Amino acid sequence: MIIDAKVIPTLDRSIFADMVRNKVSAVGVVCSIWEDLETSKEQLHELKAFIDANDDLVFEVDKVSRLESDEAKNRTGIIISWQNSTGFGGDVTNVQLFQDAGLRVVQPVFLARNEAGTGCLVSPDGGLTSYGQELIKALNFSGIAIDLSHVGNRTAGEVIRCSAAPVFYSMTSPRTLNNAMRNKSDDDMRMVADRGGVICLTTLRPYLPSANEATIENMADAVLYVRRIVGDDAVGIGSDLIPGQDASFLEYVAHDLGTGKKLRDNVSGSIVLPGFEDFSGYGNLKNCLRRKGLSSTSLDKLFGKNLLRFFGQVWAGEALPRTAAAVM
């Protein structure tokens, strides 16, 4: 089993065929980053239409049992994901509507500030807002997984304390090995893991040990470091591959709301990791980790079983009773 917590591909059939060829069980596909309510709605429906039109290759993952059923054979599951909460239009009553439409992962804040809190590339970090608190409660009630990959430290800590359910990082790397602003400290990672969450390691070269000189060996070292910090049951893969995207996409992501002020980051250089340019990279990473002594049991957890457990718990609403929530 291979579950990749985060990719941002164009909706090109050949890209998803490559996932199937490389035996990818499921991927978190991001369909909203800076978009508002109406555009987020349109892009979610566009993704669902793509899934329907290519159901020989892909299927929608709205519950983990679908990944364990016969329909998952020779197909890749799509976990519908957002990198921001701007798509709710500042109204928490929209959360359940989007969950009903298939949304399963949301990041409350992406890089900058929004109505919910502060991202990791701006300061000062004002923390989780009152709206943000209501948003977290609504996400919990609806069984939507909360991603904190690009959330500021203070805001993220307050999300963790507010959330009744475990949270996760869909992509990150240890700050101890690379001081990139988006990377997470040992304490950050422990806080997520101690509450049942998963830390997914990115393939993006500037965030790995050795940064622009990074190799698959360096990514493997990052995986093993995080595993030592949080344990075997709290690590995963979130490649953040962007197949089919061009330079304009990277510019869009790097500016507040896509067209506003360019956000200050402390990394540069190509994001492509040699040996993980495409979905064949999972095999390269797995072989490297085997050479470094990781057991088959640990590899199975890293490449899918830990995320399967996490999503199963959060989507099923095991963390809280699914009765009328105060925010709904």
Results as ranks from 00 to 15, higher is better:
Asn84Leu: 04
Ala220Val: 09
Ala247Glu: 13
Arg190Tyr: 05
Val20Leu: 02
Val226Met: 02
Asn287Arg: 13
Leu273Asn: 02
Arg291Ile: 04
Asp187Pro: 07
Lys305Gly: 11
Arg227Phe: 04
Arg66Gly: 09
Asn284Trp: 15
Pro124Gly: 05
Ala145Glu: 15
Leu111Met: 14
Leu307Gly: 02
Ala222Leu: 00
Ile136Met: 03
Lys48Pro: 02
Ile160Phe: 14
Gly87Phe: 14
Ser65Val: 08
Arg66Asn: 09
Val167Asp: 03
Asp232Phe: 12
Val223Ala: 10
Arg175Ile: 01
Ala116Asp: 08
Asn140Lys: 05
Asp194Met: 11
Trp82Glu: 01
Gly244Phe: 14
Asp300Phe: 14
Ile3Ser: 06
Glu158Arg: 13
Gly132His: 10
Ile146Asn: 11
Asp91Trp: 00
Gly102Lys: 00
Asp4Ile: 07
Arg154Val: 13
Gly127Trp: 07
Val20Thr: 09
Gly132Lys: 09
Lys301Asp: 01
Asn284Gly: 01
Tyr207Thr: 04
Met219Trp: 00
Arg175Gly: 08
Ala316Tyr: 07
Ala145Ser: 15
Arg113Pro: 06
Ala138Met: 04
Gly236Thr: 12
Ala180Val: 09
Gly28Gln: 12
Gly119Leu: 03
Ala53Pro: 06
Lys63Thr: 11
Ala145Ile: 03
Ile8Ala: 05
Ala254Gly: 11
Ser185His: 12
Glu35Gly: 08
Arg182Trp: 02
